[in-house]
C-alpha cells in the first residue's frame, strides 16, 4: 500500500500532466466557433456529429500530435546542439520542410495530383527538406560555438529557404501555384482523417526512436568527447537524432505549416517543472506539455466569436517568443 502511494507521489507531476492534457483535449473538441452544448457532445444531432467527428476531433488530435512532435524535436535538438536556443522553427528546420514541399508541389508539376493529395508526397518532401537544413546547420554548429550566433545562422537558413520558395512561386505554372498556396494556408484544421493516417504513424516512429536513444541522449549533454569516453557511438546516435527530428518536424510541418517557437520553449518549461535534464523524464514530460500547450493555443485561436479564428502561428509566437527572450536574459 505504502509502496503504491510512493509510486503515485513520485509520478504525481506526470499524472497531473496527463489529466491536464486530457482536459484540454476535451475542451478543444467542445469549444469552437459553432457553440455545441456539452450535453449534445454525444447526441444523435447530425450537424453536431459532423462538426465533431470530421472537424473538431481531427483538429484536436492534430494539435495534440503536432504539439508533442515539435516539442520533442526541440528537446533533442537542444541536446544535439548543446544549445538551449535550438528548436525546429528557430534553426530553420521548419522552413526547410516548407522548401521541400514547395519544390515538390511547384517543381513537381509533372507528378499526378493523386500522389500529392495522398499526403505521402508532402511528408517525404518535407522530411527531406528538414534533413537538408538540419545537416547544414549542424555543419555550421561545429564552427560556431556561441548559442546566439547559431540562432542567427539558423534564422539565415530559414530566410534562405523562404526566398527559394518565393523564387519557385514566381516561376511556376498557375495550377501548381494554386495547390501550393492552398498548402501554405495549412493549419491544424487542414489535417483530414486521410492525412492523419499518414502523420500519426510517422510521428510514432519518430517518438519511438527518441525513446530508444534516451540513454545516449543523456550522455551527449556532456559533449561529444565525454560521450565517446563513456562508450557512446556518437556518429550513430547523431544520425538517429537527425532522423528523429526530421520525421517529427517534417511530418507535422507537411500538414500544418511551420509553428513558431513551441518546439524551443516547451523543453525549458519541462526542465523547470520536473527539475531535471534527464531524458528519461523530459521526453514524456515534453510530449505532455507540448501537447497541452498547442491544445491551449488552439483554444485561444477560437476565442474571437462570430466564426472568426486567429492563425495558430500568431498565438504560438505570442507564447513562445517571450520565453526565448527570458532564456537569453537569464543566461547573461
Amino acid at each position: 500500500m505504502s509502496s503504491c502511494l510512493r509510486i503515485i507521489m513520485k509520478n504525481l507531476k506526470f499524472i497531473l500532466l496527463i489529466f491536464v492534457t486530457a482536459a484540454l483535449f476535451v475542451a478543444d473538441v467542445a469549444y469552437g466557433s459553432v457553440k455545441i452544448p456539452l450535453g449534445e457532445l454525444f447526441s444523435d444531432n447530425e450537424v453536431y456529429n459532423n462538426i465533431i467527428y470530421n472537424f473538431r476531433l481531427p483538429k484536436a488530435l492534430t494539435a495534440l500530435i503536432t504539439g508533442a512532435a515539435i516539442s520533442v524535436a526541440g528537446l533533442i535538438m537542444q541536446t544535439l546542439f548543446r544549445n538551449p536556443l535550438a528548436g525546429p522553427y528557430v534553426l530553420g528546420v521548419s522552413s526547410g520542410a516548407s522548401l521541400g514541399v514547395a519544390i515538390f508541389i511547384l517543381a513537381g508539376a509533372i507528378l499526378p495530383t493523386a500522389f500529392i493529395e495522398s499526403g505521402w508526397g508532402l511528408v517525404i518532401s518535407a522530411t527531406l527538406g528538414a534533413v537538408l537544413v538540419l545537416m547544414m546547420v549542424l555543419a555550421v554548429s561545429f564552427r560556431v560555438r556561441q548559442a546566439v550566433s547559431l540562432l542567427i545562422v539558423g534564422i539565415m537558413f530559414g530566410q534562405l529557404s523562404g526566398s527559394l520558395v518565393t523564387i519557385l512561386q514566381n516561376s511556376s505554372d498557375p495550377d501548381s501555384l494554386k495547390l501550393f498556396v492552398v498548402w501554405t494556408f495549412g493549419s491544424l484544421s487542414a489535417v483530414t482523417w486521410n492525412y492523419m493516417w499518414v502523420m500519426l504513424p510517422i510521428v510514432i516512429i519518430g517518438l519511438t526512436i527518441v525513446f530508444a536513444i534516451q540513454k545516449p541522449l543523456n550522455v551527449l549533454l556532456l559533449g561529444e568527447n565525454y560521450a565517446l569516453g563513456l562508450g557512446v557511438n556518437v556518429v550513430r546516435t547523431r544520425l538517429m537524432i537527425i532522423i528523429a527530428i526530421a520525421l517529427l518536424a517534417g511530418a507535422t510541418t507537411a500538414f500544418t505549416g511551420p509553428i513558431a517557437f513551441i518546439g524551443m520553449a516547451v523543453p525549458h518549461l519541462v526542465r523547470g517543472l520536473l527539475k531535471t535534464s534527464n531524458h528519461q523524464s523530459t521526453i514524456p514530460g515534453t510530449i505532455l506539455v507540448g501537447a497541452s500547450l498547442l491544445l491551449l493555443c488552439d483554444i485561444v485561436c477560437q476565442l474571437p466569436a462570430n466564426g472568426y479564428t486567429l492563425p495558430i502561428n500568431a498565438v504560438s509566437a505570442l507564447v513562445g517568443a517571450p520565453i526565448i527572450i527570458w532564456i537569453i536574459l537569464r543566461r547573461k
Binding site: L222, Y226, L230, G231, R271, G272, K275
Partner: peptide, 20 residues
C-alpha cells in the same frame, strides 16, 4: 568505443554546463 570505455575513463577540459 564500448570496449574502450571499460578500460579507461576521461576527465577533460570541456566545460560541463547543463541546466538542472
Amino acid at each position: 568505443v564500448h570496449q574502450r570505455s571499460t578500460l579507461f575513463s576521461l576527465v577533460l577540459t570541456d566545460d560541463i554546463d547543463i541546466e538542472r
